Simulated scan of single mutants.
Amino acid sequence: MSEQEIDLKKRRFLTGATSVVGAVGVGFVLVPFLSSWMPSARAKAAGAPVDVDITKLEEGQLVRVLWRKKPVWIFKRDKTALANLSAQDDVLVDPDNSEDQQPVYAKNAHRSINPEVAVIIGICTHLGCSPTYRPEVGAADLGGDEWKGGFYCPCHGSKFDLSGRVFKGVPAPTNLVIPPYHFVNDSLIRIGIDPKA
Rank of each mutant, 00 (worst) to 15 (best):
M1K: 08
M1H: 08
S2V: 05
S2D: 15
E3K: 10
Q4H: 12
E5L: 07
I6S: 05
I6R: 12
D7W: 08
D7H: 09
K10W: 09
K10C: 07
R11N: 14
R12D: 09
F13V: 13
L14Y: 14
L14M: 14
A23I: 12
A23F: 02
V24E: 01
G25L: 14
V29C: 06
V29N: 01
V29W: 11
P32E: 04
L34Y: 03
M38F: 09
K44F: 03
A45S: 12
A45H: 08
G47K: 11
G47I: 13
A48Y: 04
P49R: 05
V50G: 10
V50D: 10
V50T: 14
V52F: 13
V52T: 14
I54F: 07
T55G: 08
T55C: 05
L57A: 11
L57R: 09
E58T: 15
Q61F: 09
L62H: 06
L62W: 05
R64A: 11
V65K: 07
L66Q: 15
W67L: 07
W67M: 09
K70E: 14
P71H: 07
W73G: 11
W73Y: 13
I74W: 00
I74K: 01
K76P: 05
D78G: 14
D78L: 02
K79A: 15
T80K: 15
T80M: 04
A81I: 05
N84L: 05
V91N: 00
V91P: 01
D94K: 02
D94Q: 02
P95D: 04
P95V: 07
P95Q: 05
D96T: 13
V104Y: 08
Y105E: 13
K107F: 06
N108E: 03
N108I: 06
H110C: 03
H110Y: 03
S112F: 05
N114E: 11
P115N: 00
P115H: 01
P115D: 04
P115A: 01
E116R: 03
E116G: 00
V117R: 08
V117S: 07
A118K: 03
G122C: 06
I123G: 10
C124A: 03
C124E: 00
T125L: 01
T125Q: 14
H126T: 02
G128S: 04
G128D: 02
C129P: 07
C129A: 10
S130E: 13
P131A: 01
T132W: 09
T132F: 08
P135I: 09
A140T: 14
A140D: 15
D141M: 08
L142S: 04
G143F: 04
G143C: 04
G143I: 11
G144V: 12
G149K: 11
G149D: 10
G149C: 11
G149I: 08
G150S: 10
F151R: 04
C153E: 02
C153T: 00
G157A: 02
G157L: 02
G157R: 01
G157F: 00
S158K: 02
K159E: 12
F160Q: 00
L162C: 03
R165N: 14
F167S: 10
K168F: 08
G169T: 06
A172V: 12
N175Q: 06
V177I: 15
P179K: 11
P179D: 11
P180M: 05
V184A: 06
D186C: 06
D186K: 13
D186P: 05
D186V: 07
R190I: 00
R190Q: 04
R190F: 04
G192E: 06
G192N: 08
